[in-house]
Simulated assay, not measured.
Amino acid sequence: MKKIVVIGAGGKMGCRVSKKLMDAKRYDAYFCEVNEASIERLKAIGINTISKMEEIVPQADYVLLSIPDILIGKLSKDIIPLMKPGAMVIGLDPAAAYAGVMPIRDDIGYFVVHPHHPYLFNTERDEDGNLDFFGGKATQDVSCALYHGDEHFYAEGEQIARVIFAPVGTAFRVTVKQMGFCEPGLVESISAPLVYALKQAYEAFVAKGVPADALYSFLMGHLRVQFAITFGLIDARYSDGAILALNEAMSRIFKDNWLETMVNEDFVTESIMKITDSINKK
C-alpha cells in the first residue's frame, strides 16, 4: 500500500480530503498539521495521530499540499527537498504551479487537481440533511493537470483525485494554464463579482420595500430558468420583454471592452501572482 501524506490536513479543504483518505483505506495515509485548532478538527473526524513532516515526507509516495496558496512557495522549499525520488507532489489549486513558485526536481512528479463542486441544480443532501454544496455526497467533476514529470504520474494523480473528491463524475484533463483560466480567471474574477453584485441588488430592492422572502424566491426560481435558457439546457428562449430588458441593462452595467479586459492572460497571470504573493518577489 502506497504512502500518502497530507500537509495542512486540518484546514477546510484538508479536513475533507483527509477524511476521504481515512475512510477509503486505499492508501497508507498520514496527516501533518501544526495549528492547534486544526488538530482539534482532525480529532473530531477520528484522526488522532499527527505526523511530523520532516519524518514522514521522506517515506511518502505522494505528498498532498492542502495549504494556502500564499504559503506554498515558502513551505514547498522545505517540503520538496525531503521527498524521495519517484514520489509525487499534489496541489489542490493551480495558482502555485501557474506562478512557478515551487522548486522543480526532475526525479519527482507534480500533479494539480481542483474540484468543480456539485452543479448548481444539484439536490443531493449530506448526512445532516443539508444540500451538498462542496461535494462529498453529491457527484462532482474535477480538473486535473500534470505539471511536471512522466506520464504515469497523471494516472496515479487522477486515481487519488477520485478518492479525495469522491464521488467524481468526469475528470477533465487540462493544462495548468487552462486551470488557471478556470480559477481564478472565470470563477473568482468574473462569476464571483457578478454573484456579489446580484446580492447587492437584491438587498437594495429589499431596502425599497420588497419582502425579502418573496424577492429571494422570485430570484432563485428565475435564476434557474435563466441559466437553463442561456446555457442551452432546455429548448426555450427569453420573452421579447426579457430580451429588451437584458439588452438595455447590458450596456448600462458593463463597459464595452469588459471581455477583452477580463478574459485576458495578462490579467489572469497578475491575479495569480498576487494570490501566491510572488508578485512581491519579482
Rank of each mutant, 00 (worst) to 15 (best):
D150T: 11
P103R: 14
R16C: 02
K20G: 02
P68M: 07
E183Q: 10
K3F: 08
A95T: 09
R224Y: 03
S76A: 15
L64V: 15
A197H: 12
I243F: 13
D93C: 07
E188D: 13
F181T: 10
Y27L: 11
K52N: 11
Y196E: 11
H222W: 05
L21F: 06
Y27G: 01
D256T: 13
S191A: 12
L246C: 07
T139Y: 00
G149K: 03
G180M: 03
V176D: 00
L219Q: 07
A166D: 07
A197D: 11
Y98H: 14
E188W: 01
M88D: 07
L259H: 14
T230K: 10
P115L: 01
V206L: 10
S76N: 03
G157N: 02
E270D: 12
P184Y: 06
Y119E: 05
G136W: 05
G91L: 12
S18D: 07
I160L: 14
S18T: 04
Y202L: 12
G241K: 15
S18E: 06
D78M: 09
P85N: 13
D240F: 09
P115H: 05
I45V: 13
K281I: 06
A29P: 11
R125P: 00
Y119G: 07
L233R: 09
S239T: 15
T123F: 00
R41S: 14
C32R: 04
V168I: 12
I39G: 01
E265Y: 12
M220N: 13
K282W: 01
Y110G: 01
K137C: 04
E33M: 08
N130S: 05
F172Q: 06
I56P: 01
Q140Y: 00
S143L: 07
K3L: 09
D256E: 15
G157L: 04
A24T: 02
P81C: 12
G169N: 05
S66T: 11
G11Y: 02
F181W: 12
Y216T: 04
R237T: 14
Y202R: 14
E183T: 08
I70C: 02
K19V: 01
L65F: 14
R224M: 09
P94I: 04
A155P: 00
G100V: 05
N48C: 08
V113N: 05
D107S: 12
A192F: 10
G109M: 08
P68Y: 05
F133H: 11
I234G: 08
Y119I: 08
A192R: 13
I39C: 06
R125T: 01
I272P: 00
K282T: 02
K77T: 13
E203V: 07
A145T: 09
R16E: 03
S239R: 14
K43H: 15
R26F: 02
T49G: 01
P81G: 11
T269Q: 04
E270P: 00
I253D: 12
C182D: 10
E248G: 02
E54Y: 09
P193K: 15
P68H: 12
D132F: 05
S66M: 08
L120K: 00
V6I: 15
M13A: 08
M250Y: 11
G241M: 14
E40A: 14
Y110C: 04
Y216H: 13
A161L: 00
P85C: 11
L233D: 10
F205E: 10
V187C: 03
M13S: 09
A161S: 13
G149R: 06
Q226I: 10
